[in-house]
Measured scan of single mutants.
Amino acid sequence: EGEAHRVLFGFVPETKEELQVMPGNIVFVLKKGNDNWATVMFNGQKGLVPCNYLEPVELR
C-alpha cells in the first residue's frame, strides 16, 4: 500500500506523530500534505516524515 520511497537522510522525531527513519530505509507514502510532510508506513508503524527526506524508488 502506498508508493515506495527511499529515505535520504536520518530523521529523529520531535513529536509522537513523527516517525524515526534511517538513510536507505524503504518507506511507503500513504499521503503527502501541503505542509511538506508525508504520512508514511515503515515496519508496521505509521508517522510523519519530511517530504524532502524522501525520493521515489521503483521496487522490482
Score class of each variant (00 low, 15 high):
W37K: 14
V29T: 02
Q20E: 13
M22Y: 14
G2T: 05
K16A: 12
F11K: 03
E55M: 07
G47N: 06
V40T: 02
T15Y: 08
F9C: 12
K16G: 11
G33Y: 11
E58I: 12
H5S: 05
F9N: 14
P56T: 04
V27G: 01
D35N: 13
G24N: 05
L59P: 15
L8C: 07
V57C: 12
P50H: 03
D35M: 03
E17M: 10
L59K: 15
L19F: 07
D35E: 07
N25Q: 15
K31Y: 10
E14I: 09
W37P: 02
V12S: 13
R6V: 09
A4F: 10
A38T: 04
D35L: 04
E17S: 10
V40S: 03
L19N: 02
E14Q: 14
N34W: 08
V40F: 00
L8K: 10
N36Y: 04
Q45S: 12
G44W: 00
T15V: 07
K32A: 05
V40G: 03
V7C: 04
V57S: 04
L30Q: 10
T39Y: 11
L30S: 06
N25P: 03
L59V: 13
F42D: 05
M22R: 15
V57I: 11
G47Q: 01
F42Q: 06
V21R: 03
V29S: 02
L48V: 06
L48W: 01
K31M: 09
P50I: 03
V7P: 00
V57G: 03
G47H: 00
V49M: 12
L59I: 10
M41F: 13
F11V: 05
E14G: 11
K46F: 07
E14T: 14
F11C: 06
G24I: 02
K16F: 08
K16W: 07
H5V: 03
N43S: 06
T15N: 13
G33I: 10
N52A: 12
R60T: 15
P23G: 04
F11T: 15
G44M: 05
N52E: 14
G24P: 03
F28W: 14
G33V: 11
E17T: 10
N52F: 05
N34P: 15
V49Q: 00
L30W: 05
V40K: 02
V12P: 04
G33K: 11
R60K: 15
E3M: 11
V29P: 07
K46T: 13
L30G: 05
C51A: 12
K31F: 05
F28K: 15
L48S: 09
E55K: 09
V12K: 14
V21D: 00
H5F: 03
M41L: 13
N36W: 02
V29K: 05
F42I: 04
P56G: 04
G47K: 03
L30K: 09
Y53D: 00
E1Y: 05
G10N: 12
G10M: 11
I26A: 05
W37C: 09
R6T: 07
G10D: 12
F11H: 15
I26H: 04
N25L: 01
L54S: 03
F11N: 09
R60Y: 10
A4R: 10
L19A: 06
A4V: 07
T15H: 12
P56A: 10
V12E: 13
N36G: 15
L54A: 06
F11R: 13
A38I: 03
V21W: 01
V27W: 00
G47A: 03
A4Q: 11
F42K: 08
T39M: 09
L48Q: 07
K16I: 10
N52H: 11
E58Y: 07
P56D: 01
V57R: 03
E55H: 03
Q20L: 11
Q20G: 12
G47S: 04
F9L: 12
P13V: 04
N52V: 07
M22P: 09
N34A: 14
V7F: 01
A38G: 01
E3T: 12
N43G: 10
V49K: 04
A4H: 06
V21I: 09
R60F: 13
V21G: 02
F9D: 15
L8E: 03
E58T: 13
V40D: 05
T39P: 02
N36L: 06
D35Y: 05
E55F: 03
M22F: 11
K46L: 10
G44P: 00
E1N: 10
K46R: 12
V27S: 02
E3S: 12
F42G: 05
V12F: 12
V7Q: 03
G44R: 07
P13H: 01
V7E: 02
P56K: 12
G2W: 07
N43A: 08
K16V: 09
V29F: 00
E58M: 09
Q45F: 08
T15S: 13
E3Y: 08
G10S: 14
Y53V: 12
L59D: 13
I26Q: 07
D35F: 05
T39I: 04
I26E: 07
L30D: 07
V27I: 01
V49P: 00
N36I: 03
P23Y: 01
